[in-house]
Nucleic acid binder design. Sequence first.
DNA 1: GAATCACCCCAAAGCGCTTTGGATGGCGCA
DNA 2: TGCGCCATCCAAAGCGCTTTGGGGTGATTC
Lengths: 343, 343
Amino acid sequence: MNLKELSAILGLSQTTVSRALNGYPEVSEATRKRVAEAAERHNYSPNTRAKGLATGRAMAIGHVIPTSNRHEMVNPVFGDFISGAGETYAQNGYEMVLSLVEDGQEERTYRELKAKGTVDGLIVHGPKSSDPRIHQLHKVGLPFVVHGRVSAERKPYSWLDVNNRSAFQRATDLLLDLGHRRIALVNGLEHMDFAARRRGGYVDALTARKLPADPDLMRSGEMTELLGFDSASQMLASPNPPTAFLASSMIVAIGVRRAIHDAGLTMGRDVSVITHDDDLSYLRNGDEVPIFTATRSSVRAAGRVVAQMLLDQIATPFETPKTQLLEAQLVLGQSTGPAPTSH
Amino acid sequence: MNLKELSAILGLSQTTVSRALNGYPEVSEATRKRVAEAAERHNYSPNTRAKGLATGRAMAIGHVIPTSNRHEMVNPVFGDFISGAGETYAQNGYEMVLSLVEDGQEERTYRELKAKGTVDGLIVHGPKSSDPRIHQLHKVGLPFVVHGRVSAERKPYSWLDVNNRSAFQRATDLLLDLGHRRIALVNGLEHMDFAARRRGGYVDALTARKLPADPDLMRSGEMTELLGFDSASQMLASPNPPTAFLASSMIVAIGVRRAIHDAGLTMGRDVSVITHDDDLSYLRNGDEVPIFTATRSSVRAAGRVVAQMLLDQIATPFETPKTQLLEAQLVLGQSTGPAPTSH
DNA sequence: GAATCACCCCAAAGCGCTTTGGATGGCGCA
DNA sequence: TGCGCCATCCAAAGCGCTTTGGGGTGATTC
């Protein structure tokens, strides 16, 4: 069923039918209703491509996901993020298109997405502290919003980020308040902007109390269970082991917990753990009382908001870029306690 | 830059340029090369919508993800699956479009995707034992491939599935061979086809040895860490606790492990655990030696193959549906050992 | 009774591409 | 010389929609 057929059935012109369906005022309420009903009955939906061609809008948003030949990406957070974003898109009649792109090929992809008119804008995932993509997108001229930030970027751009620095600073402070002095950080890859900021918050908190940041207590890597396990195992086996860990994600924290158990220690009593918790739907941090004390910020909610920011930007193209900084909650769970008195 | 402009620059007709770029034989190699170079230089890419309009093909595949208002879905497996599928799409010049749809609204979505011409086909995720979607898609007339199977479906359709029954049967057999007699199953929601099949394999293995399937040793629910933890905690606290667990996913197994530790027991010695392992990129089951003994099957690889099956089906529409059953590997890890002799 | 005005509606152009159905010219061959 | 035949290219139609630039009709105003 297409417009031509539908208008033939109704005995109206294509113009009128189109206007009726798109809510233009030049058509009487009576006919509008008649048209709407007929459309429903014959379940007519306007062809997206034809509509797009005519209007110049794709009604689609791109998510370009870099995939190193290493398996890193499509990280666990991604599912929840797009699920949040997807809600927003659905409400606004947008489609979501995903492109997996080999590392370094982003610019070419942006250019093509623009030239082919596949999307009206896109979301930038996983920004690094210094990230060429911002510049590339400005050059190509596609609207975009970054989930996260790029510290090194000077020009204004739209972003939404969690206040990672403050979150990790507060978490570190809590551990310090509990009497811990040897606090380890198991961080994500530190060329990632969020990881660099977290480290910043951690170091700041230590420095504020005139404590040195011991390199032996800092690890960073891809945020896997094994990273948590290996890092914590090694540190716990060292002559001067930490009494507390900061973990960069639930999965890492789970690895840390395993290491603690394997070392014959008890989490929350012998060793404290605080993790960042993205509030993933399939990896809840306990029920009422959290398992892990955590800096919590829902990545799904972030997805919803980032998507809305982008749609707004597309609707009003010449506004100055908007930014939004979310504070993480520091929620107390069962994984933290006072530093054990030395034995 | 569009076709018209490009052909004007080249002093050729749009026809010729189009043909040159699409590899038609009616154009000399010399001009083809000249055209290709000009296209590259002015980085011209044909507008997808216009091309789609003209050819009737969307060059896009849909992934329709049901989202209950409960937060279940966008399960952890999804990221890896689409990352696999995305590889295949990219290689073949297809886009991937995601639609989040409220439970029960699928048929309407299918109809719209078809009418709007958004996609050329789609992947069905998370099939239930009896699932109306197969019928709906047949009715709507969109090519599709199911990741999983629908036991109740009589008509032929394309699918790719892991042999869940055999996998869980073999896993149960292994535990039985190790002397375990009280074996628990922490399963996914059993209206899901894969979960029903796994239960089938588990029960079969017990029955084959004339052992009863004790309802007290079977749980099912959304596959979270908490499900594993709660189920295992309760069972371990019972007067006649299990000595082994089958878990439906790594995340569940991690919860089981936590319960075992909390009960003061040691996994692999006091209590054995076998889990299904989807080989997720961010949740590796150990390095060389797996942490958990597992039935392993890469969901990313599945994504690649499912996508290819769909593209093939779109290319040759009137073939009979193809199906593919993958056997999971049973890999030995550190979480299984002989049943403890009763004390 | 003519002029004016809403109100509804329409024909046709145009979005950027593919594809049909020729045109054109050069070459070999009898 | 004249014919047929490739090889190469082109003009124009058409994909399904929106939107511009008009009408026509009946009611209202003077």
